[in-house]
Structure formats: C-alpha cells, structure tokens
Design a binder for these strands. Structure first.
Lengths: 230, 230
DNA sequence: CCAAAAGTGTTGAAATTACACCCATGG
DNA sequence: CCATGGGTGTAATTTCAACACTTTTGG
C-alpha cells in the first residue's frame, strides 16, 4: 500500500463513502430546585419512536463544525443560548438510529438555574432521576454525561457554568451536592473553595427572608482551570 | 416545530445531508527506549501533502463503528493489533482536510515496547519530541492525545497498556517518567504503587547483567480502574 | 572485589477530616 | 424575641516529600 492515510478518496469523496449523516446531541444539565436536571425534547419519528423524550440534537450542516451545530440546535429547538459546552463522546454504533446510519457527536452542556429554555413547549427540563427511557441511545449518552460532570466538578472550576455570575457559598455548596449526590461539610467546603482560590467575595450581600444576609461570590477565573482536588 | 430531533430526515437520509465522510485517526503511543513515541505513516495526497507524515487512520465503512474502524486501520496499515484504544475527540472543522469534508474520530492508543508495527515500511515509530509538522490537523490530535495520557496516568491504571504483562518496578517508573517528562523519587514511587495496589509482585526475578536481579510485577487489575492520586 | 542496579525507612511539613456554637437579620 | 440560615476555628490524624545507604548479583 503506497499511502497509509488516503483511502483512495478523491475530492470530493464518492457517494458510496458518504453513507452516513453526522449529528450532534446535547446532554444539557442544570441544577433545578436542588435537583440535577436534563433538557429533553419530544421525539416522534414514526414508526420507531412515538411520543418519546430524547436529548436535543440534530444534523451537522456542510458549513459548520460540531460546536457550531450544537449551538444552533440548542438555540432553535430549545431556545437555549450561550451556555457552556464541551465535547463528550462520539457515538457511532451501526444501528444506534433505526432510520439509517447516523454518527453522533455528543456534548455535555451546562446551564445555570435561571436559563430559560424549554419555552418551546416541545422541550423541557426534567430531573435526571425521573427521566423515562429515552429515544435512540440517549440513555447511554445521558449516563456518560453525568459521570463526566461528576468527575470534572471535583478538580476543575466547571461548576461556574451551573451558577449565575454571583452566588452565595450556600448556593455553590448546594450545586456540588446536587451533582455529586451527597452532602458535604459546610466548614470544610468553605475553607477549601477559598483556599484554592476557586471563588472571590464581592463585598455585596444577598438579603433573602428573615435571616442573616449572605455574601455574594464570583468564580475567580472564567477560564476552565484544572485545580487540584476538591 | 413538531419534532425537535428529527430534522425531516427520512430513512435513509437524502444525499444532500450525506456530504461528509467519517474517518478515524489513531494517536498511537508507546515508550520506546525511554522516549514517548508515536506511530506515524506516510501521507501523499497530492497536491496538498507531499511526502509528509501523519497519524494512522482511514474511513469508517458502512458496517462498522468507530472502534472497529480504528482496529482495522491499525492492523492493515501498520500491522498493529490488539492494542489498547480509547476514544479521544471528534475533530470536525470544516476545512481540516483540504480534499473535502472529513469528520474524524480520534483515538488514543497505547502499545507496549515490544509491539511490532511499522513493519509496513510506510509506518514507523518516532519520538514525540522529534515529530515534524504532520499532515491535516494531526499535530493537534497528537498534542491532545499526549495531554490526555499525562492526565490519565496520574489517576488510573492505564499505564498497564504501555508495559508487557510482567515488568520490574524500574521499568514501571521509567514509563511514568517518559510519559510525564520528569523524574520521580524511587522510594516514594515504589511505596505508592504498592500501597494503592496498582501492582502485585509475582515471585519471579529478572536476571539481567551484572547486578542484583529485580522482582517481576503485574498490574493487579486488568480493568481500567480509577485510583485516587499518584 | 568491583561495578551496576535493586531495594529499603524515617522524619518534618502540610493537608485533611471531624466537629458545635455564635451571628445577623426580618418578621 | 425568635426563627432562619450565615458564618467561623481547632485539634487529631493522615498524607506527602525529601533524603542515602545496604544488598545482590555477574563478571
């Protein structure tokens, strides 16, 4: 074989090599009323999936890459814009879509509690614990996304994408607890997030109800930084 | 919009949606004579890439998924079989391949020092520090793979795929040092790998040259386990 | 007996965990 | 004045990093 990369593909590739369509799917998560929740949309692809739920997604078009495609589909199909996205995994099993060969690049997306979305009536947020069996292989995609988020929240500042710009330390701790699925010690949590410079206090206070007002914090860095341990 | 997932795609998808081909590429790494090395192949896709090096890869076919495709291409194009593979990232930029739209699912693959490969004359192992500019976006793919390996070796037993079944603790430490790019303390290293039960001693000794023979070890688990810290 | 690589412990510093009470506010 | 959630420190334990010499073998 003369050339180990080129499969004899001219430009553009002949039709028989273009048998697949490429899609993107979003496992879009947020913490909603203390529960880790996922954005799902109605799926009605008869005869295979009738009146089911699935993740938000759709095809990649010729003039866009996967990142651009996922952004577009989230905006047009769920009214969700400007949220955090990171690539999760490419799902490529031959029969993962009963309609034909579809290879899907899945994304882990994170939104804060205040994000709208689901306003499209065909899309809504649902607690992860309550999701029924989803269409296609979307159960697998969702499970993969939750595992990834749990792993990442422990050693990066990724949680910033689950919170508004300013938040109390109690908000932050609740977010961690919802994602991880277990309680944390309040004093140790506060000590740690400050010491590792995850957050910085603004002077401001949040007054809410009949109790001592809480200080508002921000994440120190907007870059996704890898910090060591939490 | 009635259906948020189906883009109006019938079965099978119409031609204009099947504009892309889907490929796989392998960032295949091993530690060769103490140096982290990558498997590269000749690329000659005139007029864009003349006599260049690139990663081993090729197209996905209609009857296989990405995992199967990467296995096939490594075997047929580099004679490399039965090595460890994990999906790395899907690269999908519109013009990443000058010949046309190619979306590539990249893999991180690991081999032990004894693996053959490169016997095909068109494929060979090259120290990562010495690789010239590669074809396509393969520099980016390689960089991504090395970062991933460095991160993972620190908290998983993934290093097992870089070593033969039995090895000395010195072999193991050399492997870690080659991947990480810095020296480690011998006593602390040995203490840690035993305490965390990464490896188990076989009674056997390796006699080599005029020096005290070393005990041979194995990895305790063949599953990819996530251990905490190393 | 010499060269070469294998093997082995201790100590001081730093980090981690567990744990309970006082504070500030609004109603 | 009381109910609510916010905020704080310390001591015991564990973990981590730095460091040098003895052992075993083949030639």
């Amino acid at each position: 074989m003369e050339n180990v990369y080129n499969n004899g593909m001219p430009s553009p590739a002949p039709k028989h090599l273009r048998f697949a369509v490429v899609a993107v799917d979003a496992a879009c998560l947020k913490v909603d009323h203390g529960k880790l929740s996922v954005l799902v949309g109605r799926v009605n692809t008869k005869p295979h999936y009738v009146n089911r739920w699935g993740l938000i997604g759709g095809l990649i078009l010729p003039n866009e890459n996967a990142d651009e495609a996922i952004t577009r589909h989230l905006a047009t199909k769920a009214g969700v814009k400007r949220i955090y996205k990171e690539q999760l995994y490419a799902f490529s099993d031959v029969d993962r879509d009963p309609r034909g060969r579809v290879i899907s690049v899945a994304y882990l997306c994170l939104a804060d509690d205040t994000i709208a979305g689901g306003g499209e009536a065909q899309a809504k947020w649902m607690p992860v614990k309550d999701v029924p069996k989803l269409a296609y292989d979307h159960d697998l995609v969702l499970r993969t996304a939750v595992e990834r988020l749990r792993a990442r929240i422990g050693y990066t500042n990724i949680a910033q994408h689950l919170l508004p710009r300013e938040f109390t330390l109690t908000n932050l701790q609740n977010t961690y607890e919802a994602v991880l699925g277990h309680k944390l010690d309040k004093r140790n949590f506060r000590k740690k997030v400050q010491e590792v410079k995850l957050v910085t206090g603004t002077g401001k206070k949040e007054h809410k109800g009949a109790s001592r007002p809480a200080e508002l914090y921000r994440f120190s860095s907007k870059e996704t930084k890898t910090i060591e341990i939490l």
